[in-house]
Nucleic acid binder design. Structure first.
Lengths: 197, 197
DNA sequence: TTTTATTGATTGATGCGTCAATAAAAAATA
DNA sequence: TATTTTTTATTGACGCATCAATCAATAAAA
């Protein structure tokens, strides 16, 4: 059976299995055997490629993060105006790929785990910082600096909050209404600023 | 040593110990021994009073929830106007007692745990519902029904989001600025509505 | 023959939940 | 009031299950 060049395929399969396992269990205490089983390999192989369980979890987190960043930069590339840049960032966060039960459960679980693990916390800080600066890349051209910072904070908080409510499967059932909520806030703040000018 | 009437004292001490243990560890996987140790008793006693670990966690969650509800009703009682009612609900959520690292870590951990445990999920649904209707108790008198619902959703999401960001100890360092963010949103929406009228 | 892929079996640790044992208070009985 | 009995409080020790991590063994490529 052993065919060479399996490593990248197995790594990817194990990471995918980790996300779906976390999504189904709803928490990070999934076993290595559970994950490995989903990926169709033995738990020993998972250890072979990733070392400790925490390393696999960190790799999964990094994967989630880099997917989000990739999608975001792609969306930003085609955004023509500052206003469109802000909407692009928002829509990526609520895209089908991101705003899915398994993905959200994984994010939530990682937030909790980050309390313990400094490595994970660093990764989440990076995420928060990127989200902020991506939002600012549009807002800074629409509002005075201080207001832009303020609106970026509030928008980021709203996005995180909507993720949580989605995890609870209560209120805000779909991505469209979540986007509408955030966009409405933005529109309100922008028109308020325009009036003041 | 055995003195009669220990039960309520022990129960309370164990629940407090659970919160602080979760706060320090940052997650729900604290051991019964750890909790019992903090409460100054053996793990066997914790089992004696609460049964399974999950029961202790559920009791802790219920305690957190009922404290929040008690504080909220107290704050609502002294609120004179509809506008004051909304502010009252917000300020309770960011009060010293609620917006504390240990409490927030516990809430976050419970959100994750709720994915697995239907009992906990029910409790969190109750919390979300109460928060919503408490906000509505003021908003319904300030805005048309549909707008009020919308603003209540957004406010609730913002509150949850700010909790998460607090848990990460990143951005929004203190309660005051968190309140300012939410109040600013509210004020903006209310004045927008007033102008439209 | 060396490297890469893979696993079953095993080990060691951890932690929940139980149980029998101890002791002090309260209640019942003499 | 003195005693026995029952109830309440409490724990150390232990069984049992789970799981992460290791390792020796197998087999196909290079």
């Amino acid at each position: 059976m052993p065919k060479v060049g399996m490593e990248p395929l197995r790594r990817r399969a194990l990471i995918d299995a980790t996300i779906s396992a976390i999504g189904e269990r709803g928490s990070l205490d999934v076993t290595m055997s559970e994950i490995a089983g989903r990926a169709g390999v033995s738990s020993a192989l998972a250890h072979h490629y990733f070392g400790a369980k925490e390393d696999l979890l960190a790799a999964t987190m990094r994967h989630l993060l880099s997917e989000l960043l990739t999608d975001t930069t792609a969306a930003l590339r085609v955004a023509e105006t500052p206003r469109a840049r802000v909407s692009a960032v928002i829509s990526v966060n609520f895209s089908d790929k991101q705003f899915r039960a398994a993905t959200i459960a994984a994010w939530l679980a990682f937030y909790v785990e980050a309390q313990k693990s400094p490595g994970l916390r660093r990764l989440l800080r990076i995420y928060a910082h990127r989200l902020h600066s991506n939002l600012m890349s549009g807002l800074a051209r629409l509002l005075p600096r201080a207001d832009a910072e303020h609106v970026a904070e509030a928008t980021a908080a709203m996005i995180d909050g909507l993720y949580i409510r989605r995890a609870l499967r209560d209120g805000i059932p779909n991505a469209a209404s979540a986007i509408a909520l955030v966009e409405d806030y933005l529109e309100t703040k922008l028109s308020q600023a325009a009036r003041a000018r």
